[in-house]
């Protein structure tokens, strides 16, 4: 038997349900803690971001209009797929320089799966909790509905790559927003593997797009992009957070930038992580005599 050639994975972007390379042709060298190259990932450009936002915009009417039950089921399906890809996700986490050992990587995958299941459950519950029936003086019913905002950009910190990504992404998707995820180039492999999970979980194309790239390069374009309605970010450097704040003011994006997050704590599972990316709609309805 001749010796087998290695068949190595090409880590690509995930845009509109497809796995393209970056339009720019660039790639990121992913290194382990000793500095040797373990893999190459795609290095997204602003044009990849533009394409991803267009895809997310196209997907929004369908995803936000689908039933809460269906969204919950699809998120739960994604958790099932993550569980099946546990070994590959853990390997992706240990390969990069962010994580330390396989035990820690396994623990991160477990937490990420559990968090996804948690928000899958919220999909058909958040509107009961965050919406309400308002008391009004008159023969009317007055309801407030919580509806998704639109296209939300999720900007992830390098550590912990997978858990932070799921924690920021799941609350955005469960309420019916569509998402463009930007995973930091420092440790992008688990995000690239997660794209395969999304692709096999019945998400319609464009609902969740995943880019791996340089935050310093992409965040300024996220900030000023007029067709992005919200930004959910964590762990940004002071300067980058400032750039983001200045840009989002122009078209008034809903923006949450977390700092100092304890990613394994229950605080990340609060419905208040869903609420920033909702629009409250109030309806008056005549009460029957």
């Amino acid at each position: 038997m001749p010796e087998r050639l290695d068949v190595l994975k090409t880590y690509k972007l995930f845009i509109d349900g497809k796995f393209p390379r970056s339009e720019s042709g660039r790639s990121i060298e992913v290194k382990d803690r000793k500095g040797s190259v373990v893999a190459h990932a795609s290095h997204a450009s602003r044009k990849d971001l533009r394409e991803a936002v267009e895809a997310a915009r196209r997907a929004f009417p369908g995803w936000s209009g689908s039933s809460a039950l269906l969204r919950g089921q699809i998120l739960y399906r994604a958790a099932e797929m993550m569980e099946g890809k546990r070994a590959e996700l853990a390997q992706a986490l240990t390969a990069g320089r962010g994580s330390t050992g396989s035990r820690q990587a396994q623990a991160e995958v477990s937490l990420a799966v559990d968090r996804l299941v948690h928000f899958a459950g919220w999909a058909d519950k958040f509107s009961q909790v965050l919406g309400c029936h308002n008391a009004v003086a008159g023969p009317y019913y007055n309801f407030t509905f919580a509806e998704p905002t639109g296209v939300v950009c999720v900007v992830c910190p390098p550590v912990p790559p997978l858990l932070s990504l799921i924690s920021l992404l799941a609350p955005v998707l469960c309420s019916g927003n569509t998402a463009v995820v930007i995973a930091d180039a420092a440790d992008p492999l688990s995000a690239a593997v997660l794209a395969e999970v999304i692709a096999t979980s019945d998400f319609p194309a464009g609902v969740c797009n995943i880019l791996t790239g340089d935050l310093d390069e992409l965040v300024p374009f996220v900030a000023t992009h007029r067709d992005i309605d919200g930004v959910h970010a964590a762990g940004l450097s002071g300067d980058l957070a400032k750039t983001l704040r200045a840009g989002v003011a122009e078209n008034i994006k809903r923006t949450v930038v977390h700092s100092e997050v304890e990613w394994d704590s229950a605080a990340c599972e609060s419905p208040w992580w869903i609420e920033p990316f909702l629009e409250m709609k109030t309806v008056w309805h005549p009460a029957s005599a």
């Binding site: 533009r50 936002v53 915009r57 374009f221 000023t224 992009h225 007029r226 067709d227 122009e250 078209n251």
Partner: peptide, 9 residues
């Protein structure tokens, strides 16, 4: 402007 535009513009 260097800013990507939205459909509603």
């Amino acid at each position: 402007s260097g800013r990507y535009q939205a459909g509603y513009d």
